[in-house]
């Protein structure tokens, strides 16, 4: 019965190739027809005028991804260290499922909570319309927390016990051991987790759409609204025809390239460097 798993694998691979093929077949010709330079480097996106430059949305995606990493990476790493090094087993047995559960919450729920709580808080507390890079970063930062935490935790758990014992025997404190021994030893796994989390942040659509404001003007500060690539596709695909539709597929092709690139980076980072123990 080895045929069945093979068939399943074939279907999975086929699905991926079909998606890639479809998006590239729809997205690349309009990209080439318009000229990749004006598409990638144009600031103006206006379907009424037939102008499709996506630099402002690319910048928006980078804003939100960077902001989410600033929020999610330190918190996730701290959680992972807490889980593997500090907490007693019963406490960790509560925290770990809680973090896992966070990953199971649908993104529209995160978006809704952000819309109801964060957006008014930012508007009244910090100024601006509330719909902002900051709101999107906080929401997506919490959403990528499980990825960062669980990957880093797995990497830390894989560091041999003898490293910790040797470090403590040499007189290093707990914090010194974490910083100088454990984090460097677990680096490949931690970095792989961070890159995967960044990939998730790039692709997140619904929650960002609800709290980012989606203004096309490029954001200058974290309190400005912002439009991401995914939000544009979700907002406009339902109506788009002709060149507009082609431009949205081109945006999809670029998004696909971006996430494939990020996943490739994660695989590279996950490999130990030459000379390091694996």
């Amino acid at each position: 019965m080895a045929g069945l798993p093979k068939l399943a694998a074939l279907i999975t691979g086929l699905a991926l190739s079909l998606i890639a093929y479809f998006i590239l077949a729809e997205g690349v010709p309009p990209l080439l027809a318009q000229g990749p330079a004006s598409f990638l480097l144009g600031w103006r996106w206006d379907s009424r005028a037939g102008e499709f430059g996506m630099l402002s949305m690319l910048a928006g995606t980078l804003w939100v991804t960077a902001g989410a990493m600033l929020v999610g990476a330190p918190l996730g790493l701290a959680c992972a260290l807490l889980l593997s090094e500090v907490l007693t087993a019963p406490a960790a047995a509560v925290l770990r499922p809680a973090v896992e559960l966070l990953g199971a919450i649908p993104s529209v729920v995160f978006g809704f909570l952000g819309l109801l709580t964060l957006v008014p808080l930012i508007r009244t507390g910090l100024g601006g319309p509330g719909f902002s890079v900051l709101a999107a970063s906080l929401v997506v930062g919490v959403m990528i927390l499980p990825t960062v935490t669980l990957m880093a935790h797995a990497a830390l758990c894989a560091v041999p016990r003898s490293y910790r014992e040797a470090s403590r025997a040499l007189g290093a404190g707990q914090w010194q051991t974490m910083r100088m021994i454990l984090l460097p030893a677990a680096r490949p796994g931690i970095v792989a987790g961070l890159v995967l989390a960044a990939g998730r942040a790039v692709g997140e659509t619904m929650a960002v759409l609800m709290v980012a404001g989606n203004a096309l003007e490029p954001a200058n500060c974290p309190l400005d609204p912002v439009r991401t690539l995914t939000a544009t596709m979700a907002l406009e695909l339902g109506y788009a025809t002709g060149r507009h539709r082609g431009a949205l597929f081109s945006a999809g092709a670029i998004l696909l390239g971006l996430s494939l690139g990020v996943t490739g980076l994660a695989r590279l980072a996950g490999r130990p460097r030459a000379g390091e123990p694996d």
Binding site: R44, R48, P129, F131, N214, A215, L216, E217, R227
Partner: peptide, 11 residues
């Protein structure tokens, strides 16, 4: 006149 790029867009 086009709608300002800085306007928020809701769906």
């Amino acid at each position: 006149s086009p709608t300002a790029q800085r306007s928020l867009v809701l769906d």
